[in-house]
């Protein structure tokens, strides 16, 4: 593996990188939705009152 290489097509590695890409998208959308859903409730819980205090 030493020495400069031109990348060759490798379906298994492409699938691996694709899985990381997919996870990133899912986390971005999932955590975004979760933040909207439970964010205000969590803020109330942590700060102990109205979340609009921010």
């Amino acid at each position: 593996m030493a020495g400069l290489e031109i990348p060759s097509w490798d379906p298994e590695t492409a699938l691996l990188i694709g899985a990381i890409l997919l996870e990133a998208f899912v986390l971005y959308v999932g955590y975004g939705g979760l933040e909207r859903l439970v964010g205000p409730y969590l803020m109330d819980l942590i700060v102990g009152g109205n979340a609009s205090a921010r």
Binding site: T13, A14, L27, Y28
Partner: peptide, 23 residues
């Protein structure tokens, strides 16, 4: 990552939980 992955250098068992927490 693709180049490292071709040489077996990317471990999804490490990357997936790291990303899960960091996001």
């Amino acid at each position: 990552s693709y180049l490292y992955g071709q040489g077996g250098g990317v471990n999804l068992g490490i990357v997936a939980p790291l990303l899960f927490g960091s996001a």
